[in-house]
Simulated assay, not measured.
Amino acid sequence: MADYRGLGFDPAPGSAGAVAAASARCAVEVPVPGVPVGWEGAAAEGLRTRLEAVVSELTAVRRAMRAASEVLDAWATTLLGNQRRAEDLDRRAVALRRDLSDAADEVDRAGALAAFTPAHAEVHADAVARHDRVARQLDDVLEEARLLARDHHAEARRVAERLRSEEPSTALADALADFSALTAELASVLLGPPARAAGRGAADAFAAGLG
């Protein structure tokens, strides 16, 4: 996790690796067995009929899982872009805080001289103006970071809603524990703290990465 010393907060929390792991979970294919070769009779026909129904259900599940994987892949790309922007803003904020500290020292020095030498009053005024200019620049960077955080969190909520909409509502889907847990929990883990430091499954990894 990046240490945003200049900004004082993380505008784009998340782990692209955790998102990729969740996407990979969604992309797993679920095979359906066939009727054993040589098995005939009413029982075999019954199994064949049931398997055809399962294949139909599984097609819907696979479609939903692929859609969820695409949503997560797009979010990973957005996440990386937001984090690069956050890191750039933080570098600018660090430099400006350093300049602001130097400017404050200059204001103090010029003010002390102006108190004894009226000729230094203009120097002091220039130092104050420079300090105020740097302070405004820092405020602009911090505001940009706050807007980035707002947009980042809004997009995370949209991702959670899209994932919810892709969750298949079939009996077969209930058996897909990883996918079911992932889609059910994503809305809370996108922006909230992880439920535990170490877990198993895509949702746990995603929660740990995005906390």
Rank of each mutant, 00 (worst) to 15 (best):
E57W: 01
L58G: 03
A60M: 14
V61W: 01
R62Y: 00
R62N: 03
R62F: 01
R62G: 02
A64M: 02
A67M: 09
A68E: 05
S69D: 06
D73T: 15
W75V: 00
T77E: 12
T78D: 07
L79I: 14
L80C: 06
N82E: 15
R84K: 13
A86Y: 06
A86C: 09
A86P: 03
L89P: 07
D90V: 10
V94M: 09
V94I: 15
V94S: 06
A95R: 14
A95D: 11
A95H: 03
A95N: 08
R97M: 08
D99G: 04
D99L: 06
D99I: 00
L100F: 06
L100G: 13
L100A: 14
S101D: 14
D102C: 05
D105N: 15
D105H: 09
E106N: 08
E106V: 02
E106Q: 10
E106M: 01
R109Y: 13
A110C: 11
G111D: 07
A112K: 10
A112C: 01
A112Y: 13
F116G: 09
F116N: 03
T117N: 15
T117M: 07
T117R: 12
T117D: 15
P118H: 04
A119G: 06
H120T: 08
E122F: 09
V123I: 04
H124W: 05
A125E: 14
D126W: 04
A127E: 04
H131A: 13
H131W: 11
R133N: 07
R133L: 13
A135N: 09
L138T: 02
D139V: 03
E143C: 02
R146C: 05
L148E: 07
A149G: 02
R150D: 09
V159R: 11
R162P: 04
S165Q: 14
P168H: 10
P168I: 05
S169I: 00
S169F: 01
A171D: 08
A171G: 12
A173S: 12
